[in-house]
Nucleic acid binder design. Structure first.
Lengths: 171, 171
DNA sequence: ACAGCCATGTAACTTGTTACATGATTTT
DNA sequence: AAAATCATGTAACAAGTTACATGGCTGT
């Protein structure tokens, strides 16, 4: 997925790895922490597959930078991906969901602490997202994304209520 | 994640690969399609890491089956995972979210078709999940999981409304 | 001098995923 | 006789992830 985000960032102009990391993090409003190494591994794979090309740019006296740009194939692939619908799939591949499922199915451990900790997580996430939405300089693509994340956390909190009913009160 | 689900299924009794696939699909109410090959690759890795062990059981005249059981290490690892809270992270790593983000940021393609197709996807998913909830034999661990998936799709549909406002009416 | 940021990159590993090969048994 | 189901497995690849190595420049 990062692959397509990087291709997207290269539509405007060629960029080097560090710049792509910064651009990506701005785009997602800092909600998606990214190890810089992953940018380079992903770029390497994109170049291997002919979706981007790179050249070394001298920045005398600063050290050289490797600047990546979109190839024609890369732009086609990005456009194809952008209009293609996503496979319909319910969101059950979630670590916490699976934990709760196993807690309920196996009753191996007391789930109370887990549920409490998870609520803290969700509330913390919600606070972070709300703070992001308060930034006035936020691009509206980013705002849209973060609003979606808020809706999801709210759904998670509602589900957590349901889980507590079922798991703690022995429903 | 499948890794832990398989460990969980082995708590009750030893099982062979095909049986684990069936058990898993029952547990998730058929909402998580699973390639049988993945069960075997995962079991192979679990055995390599000492979390399960296997033995060949003769089923004369039926062909032998390889039956997996939980090791002590495996049970410890499962218990550890079950009580460990999940890392707090907003749900932004979603293919459709990223597509919308790039649509809005780049305006390379018309998003109308994508949004329409995605709404069909969500409605289809919702119908599938509702049908699962109607099954009377559903284990309540499974019911809980599916209810969570419903809350998520509902959040997705609400977000889609928001996206249409912003992307289509040029918000 | 030292911290901190700018900048690139690799090796190694995990998990997910599928296409393919193989064959037996059971049901129609 | 064919189709479906039971049953096991491998090879290969995609994608995510991080720890580590390396070095230059900038500000205090």
């Amino acid at each position: 997925m990062l692959k397509y985000a990087l291709l997207g960032l290269l539509v405007d102009r060629p960029r080097h790895g560090y710049d792509l990391k910064a651009g990506f993090e701005t785009l997602v409003g800092g909600t998606w922490p990214l190890n810089i190494g992953q940018v380079y591994t992903t770029l390497g794979r994109l170049e291997r597959d002919g979706l981007v090309r790179s050249e070394l740019v001298e920045q005398d006296p600063r050290p050289d930078r490797r600047v990546y740009s979109l190839t024609e194939t890369g732009e086609k692939e990005l456009r194809r991906w952008l209009v293609d619908a996503v496979e319909p799939q319910p969101h059950v591949k979630d670590e916490f969901y699976v934990k709760v499922l196993l807690h309920r199915a196996l009753a191996l451990e007391d789930p109370a602490d887990l549920l409490w900790a998870q609520r803290q997580n969700y509330l913390e996430t919600l606070a972070t997202l709300t703070a992001v939405l308060d930034e006035p300089s936020l691009a509206d693509a980013t705002r849209l994304l973060v609003e979606g994340a808020v809706l999801h956390v709210e759904a998670d909190l509602r589900w957590l209520d349901r889980c507590e009913e079922t798991l703690l009160r022995g429903g």
